[in-house]
Design a protein around this nucleic acid. Structure first.
Length: 720
DNA sequence: AGCACGCCGACT
DNA sequence: GTCGGCGTGCTC
């Protein structure tokens, strides 16, 4: 038999082999490949267009009796490899845990079970005499026990003694479908909008359909998730909940675990290979009812997946930013269609893509208008920075407001999306600034560690005493970062604690959690942080949120920047006033009349999104246009340009696809390499994808392609 | 990606 | 005279 095998190499082709033994698609095989041996996945049996049969090598070993990749997953992966034009071998890497890629046995053994033999059952307590430990073990073994249960109280050699005596025997304990159970904790009462949403999803169970659940923070989205899940886990089905990278908080997990008496698993990037493998197996065997995980959980092999939930569906961390650049939300929709189950996308600030899908009738729209607990929405105040006396990056009014809220015994949250002390050091004599040698960027001054750090390539060096241009010793920090603001806030408000939360202050393991716990105790204080504060965390005692610098996001050349700013504003508004009082949001800007700001503030996100969508339509941007991007990196600028020019030349044949470029990436040099790009727009998705197929075949033929590092990004999230 | 082959410069 | 640099080709 000839089999077609997908191999872990970055080539967009399959390889054919001979195989005498029984195999099914989705099984792993060990095959000779050049001078090497590789583990591949059987992709097709007896392909009609097989490679010259006389040239075929034979499979060395079949590693699985049953497929590690079941048909639905293979269908998903195959679709993904086509859609993102990514080598299948790399795509498979996302779907298999490392241990399986390395050839580990995939049999789902949970552990070992000990039970008494006939001889063991006929023993009596008296026979143990003074052997108290053995008596206790015997008593516990009246019921079959897992090895791990027994090892809590007994030593391994005691277990072995029972086996040697023929009193007990060991059997492998296999994973299997979980025991369904009723809810542990009673569900909360629903308001009419929530009830409508729950009913809609529940009625859709068993068939493919997409729902967009739009509800502001505090409107009770999680309760809708939980009640939508309820009938699924009562019927023995499985649910996948995808969350953004930072959203995987212990509280979220606890809420799911407390509600249902069924096994809940988690999946995220901090797990060990063995932990991942175990979750993978428990999914495959149906042992886990619910999995909460970040984007790659999308590829887990569920036995009976009946519902998908994507929380914070607008979040950009669902798009992988290197290698296989897939969007987990988009692929999740594909997966739901393959599995014939509903998918629920939830957000307070839906992506424009999803809203367009609602408008075009592809998604059903479920709205939760009210804050569940009936709190008031926070009020937003714009602080016009023009001609203001600024102190430490804050206008007088801003400082007053902070003071007022501290006096009221509330906490104040400040956002500044720039870590470090200052974005650069500047020479007071000649204007020279500290630059990274390898990137087109300045190096950030970190005062505490006394270092200059490039935030783009990670290079660090000591702080110079002299200007690199004129030799002057007059070097001063320019601009403001969180480290500096922390110091300044402490000076301005010496009576209050200032907590800074950014990548630097939370580097030590557990220090983030420690800071969050301390904040939750509610003492009036200033909390200051970067983007990492914006998502997921709940601070009930925060009465005021200040956004120090709105302007840098207002005027960005990234077409998604307005959308992201509107999302940030809405999300942080949700952070304020979750307790009894309504919160306040303060925005510092030089452009208080800016249409986007006005629209979001006065009419809310939904209104903003409607106008933003119209604008995207008029300017021929996604989601009304399909976009793909070729990026190329090389040490020599000329190689970048030449390679892209060849791509551009190829596109002369494709009238339906519009080109923008070749042009430099927003950050032209990074880690010593030049970076250029070409943007491809098409009205017709099919045309775009056909053109990509054809240009990729060309690219693989060019010898220039090996002197540069290039990548294709389909549906890019940002143009960097 | 890896691995081999092959052709040119600087070393024990 | 070799060792090893990386350009090029190939992997069913």
């Amino acid at each position: 038999m000839v089999i077609r095998v997908a191999l872990p190499i970055p080539l967009r082709v399959h390889f054919d082999y001979l195989c005498d033994s029984e195999v099914q698609p989705g099984c792993r095989v060990l095959v000779p490949f050049g001078k090497r041996e590789l583990i591949g996945i059987v992709w097709q049996l007896n392909p009609s267009d097989s490679y010259d049969a006389t040239q075929l090598k034979a499979v060395t070993q079949v590693l699985d009796q049953t497929p590690v990749l079941a048909a639905p997953i293979r269908q998903l992966l195959s679709f993904a490899a086509d859609y993102y034009h990514h080598p299948l071998g790399d795509v498979l890497t996302s779907a298999l845990p490392a241990l399986l890629r390395d050839g580990k046995n995939a049999d789902p053994v949970k552990g070992h079970s000990y039970q008494l033999t006939e001889a063991g059952q006929h023993l009596t307590a008296e026979q143990f005499k003074a052997a108290k430990k053995r008596l206790a073990l015997w008593q516990q073994l009246q019921q079959p026990q897992t090895e791990s249960q027994l090892l809590e109280h007994f030593q391994r050699k005691e277990l072995q003694y029972f086996i040697d005596q023929g009193w007990a025997l060991v059997t492998p304990l296999l994973y299997g479908p979980y025991q369904t159970a009723a809810e542990q904790q009673k569900s909360l009462p629903l308001n009419p909008a929530q009830a409508l949403a729950v009913t809609a999803v529940q009625q859709a169970l068993g068939s493919f359909s997409c729902f967009l659940l739009e509800g502001v923070t505090g409107s009770g989205k999680t309760e809708v998730y939980l009640q939508a899940i309820s009938p699924v886990v009562k019927a023995g089905g499985q649910v996948l909940v995808l969350v953004p990278e930072i959203g995987l908080t212990p509280q979220t997990l606890a809420r799911f675990e407390q509600r249902f008496a069924v096994p809940v698993g988690v999946w995220h990037s901090n797990m060990t290979d063995l932990e991942r493998f175990t979750v993978w197996q428990r999914c495959q065997t149906g042992d886990l009812a619910i999995v909460i995980g970040t984007r790659s959980a999308l590829f887990l092999p569920f036995l009976k997946l009946d519902l998908l939930i994507i929380d914070e569906e607008h979040d950009s961390s669902f798009k992988q930013q290197d290698g296989f650049r897939y969007h987990a939300r988009d692929l999740a929709i594909k997966r739901a269609s393959i599995q014939c189950c509903p998918i629920l996308l939830g957000s307070a600030t839906p992506s424009l893509e999803s809203l367009a899908n609602v408008q075009q009738g592809r998604f059903a729209h479920l709205e939760l208008p009210d804050r569940a607990a009936g709190q008031l929405m926070p009020s937003v105040e714009l602080v016009d920075l023009k001609q203001q006396q600024m102190l430490h990056g804050m206008a007088g009014l801003t400082r007053q407001r902070i003071e007022q809220h501290l006096k009221l015994g509330q906490q104040v949250l400040l956002f500044l999306n720039r870590r470090g002390f200052a974005p650069a050091l500047i020479c007071h004599e000649c204007g020279w600034m500290t630059e990274c040698h390898r990137c087109s960027a300045f190096t950030t001054f970190h005062k505490q560690s006394r270092q200059l750090v490039c935030h783009h390539c990670g290079a660090t060096k000591g702080v110079p005493h002299q200007c690199g241009g004129c030799g002057s010793t007059q070097l001063a920090p320019v601009g403001q970062g969180t480290e500096q603001l922390e110091e300044q806030l402490q000076q301005l408000f010496p009576a209050h604690r200032v907590t800074r939360l950014d990548r630097d202050s939370t580097r030590r393991k557990g220090s983030l959690q420690q800071a969050l716990d301390q904040i939750l105790q509610g003492e009036p204080q200033l909390i200051l942080g970067t983007q990492m504060l914006a998502k997921g965390h709940h601070f009930p005692n925060v009465g005021l949120v200040v956004i120090i610098d709105v302007d840098s996001a207002l005027y960005s050349n990234d077409f998604r920047a307005p959308e992201q700013l509107a999302q940030l504003l809405t999300q942080v508004s949700g952070r304020a006033g979750r307790g009894s009082q309504p919160g306040k949001v303060l925005l510092q800007t030089h452009y208080p009349g800016h249409a986007l700001l006005q629209d979001v503030i006065q009419n809310g996100y939904a209104s903003f999104a409607r106008s933003a969508l119209k604008e995207r339509q008029q300017t021929f941007l996604p989601p009304f246009m399909f976009l793909a991007l070729f990026r190329v990196e090389a040490h020599q600028l000329e190689l970048c340009k030449e390679w892209l020019q060849q791509v551009a030349d190829h596109y002369k044949n494709w009238q339906q696809v519009q080109l923008l470029g070749p042009l430099a990436c927003p950050m032209e040099r990074k880690a010593g390499k030049y970076r250029w790009q070409i943007q491809l727009f098409a009205k017709d998705r099919k045309q775009l994808h056909q053109s990509l197929d054809s240009v990729l075949t060309e690219i693989s033929r060019w010898s220039l392609s090996r002197k540069v590092k290039w990548q294709l990004d389909v549906d890019p999230q940002d143009l960097n």
